[in-house]
């Protein structure tokens, strides 16, 4: 049986999710043993245009990082989709727009003015959007960056023609398994653990840092209840909303 062909691509992003794959140091040889990595610009010494690499091979599995920000991003994403059986969004940018989309409430011109002091479009970019706004996404691995354990589980399951079973519950549960003092309740800090998808092992709250929601909202996030609770603690609703939009601008946030 020939090994499945894999491509790992990055759109507009910090490349942190691709790095997370490279950081699976102990398992890299196993990964390379199990799959045939046909394109992974970040890990290649011999550089060949991504477009050319795509011409050469069709992929069984394409992992795509980053948000769609430019026309090139969109073109490349569609090309990847046409050339792969399965398309996996890796990281919160690819799945939700992530940090790049956090100020999608402002027009680009206004943002250029704030950042560059002029209104000119230097890059030809649009409001950052997640992959699923453009193509069919078969599966998403969340996180900023993605979790090593989830990458490995996704690889092995997908190789087995199965989808990985990942947590569907909030970070709070994992936080309690780690026996942390509740930041939200006991320290009155705006911690997003209760509305954020678990899978990170509650890493931030376990280090005393409130959850910022980098893994995106959990299904059935009870945001009205969080609003109510934060109001009781004296936080303005706008703060809560801004915080909730940091990573997942496009998520539905009821008023």
């Amino acid at each position: 049986m020939s090994k499945p062909k894999i491509g790992i691509f990055g759109l507009t992003s910090c490349a942190g999710d691709q790095l997370a794959i490279l950081n699976c140091e102990d398992e890299l040889l196993d990964i390379v043993g199990a799959v045939d990595i046909k394109s992974f610009i970040m890990a290649q010494s011999e550089l060949k245009a991504v477009q050319d690499q795509m011409e050469d091979s069709r992929f069984d599995l394409a992992l795509v990082e980053g948000a769609v920000v430019t026309d090139e991003d969109e073109k490349m994403l569609k090309k990847i989709r046409d050339n792969t059986k399965l398309l996996i969004a890796i990281g919160t940018c690819a799945a939700w727009g992530g940090i790049p989309a956090s100020r999608n409430d402002l027009e680009r011109e206004e943002l250029y003015q704030i950042v560059y002091g002029r209104r000119e479009d230097l890059f030809g970019c649009h409001k950052p959007r997640p992959l699923r706004d453009f193509v069919q996404v078969d599966f998403s691995l969340l996180g900023c960056p993605i979790e090593k354990e989830e990458i490995l589980r996704a690889f092995s399951s997908l190789l087995h023609e199965d989808v990985p079973v990942l947590p569907t519950f909030p970070v709070c549960f994992e936080c309690k398994l780690n026996e942390n003092l509740c930041i939200f309740k006991e320290k009155d800090d705006l911690c997003h653990g209760s509305v954020t998808l678990a899978g990170c092992g509650a890493r931030c709250p376990s280090h005393g840092v409130p959850c910022r929601g980098c893994r995106g909202p959990v299904d059935e996030a009870n945001i009205p209840s969080v609003y109510h609770l934060m109001k009781e603690k004296g936080y303005p609703v706008a703060d809560v909303e801004r915080a909730l939009r940091t990573f997942t601008y496009n998520a539905e946030i009821p008023q």
Partner: peptide, 12 residues
């Protein structure tokens, strides 16, 4: 309406 479905109560 209040519950956050976080499972903290069950965990502890």
């Amino acid at each position: 309406r209040k519950c956050l479905s976080c499972g903290a109560c069950s965990a502890v």
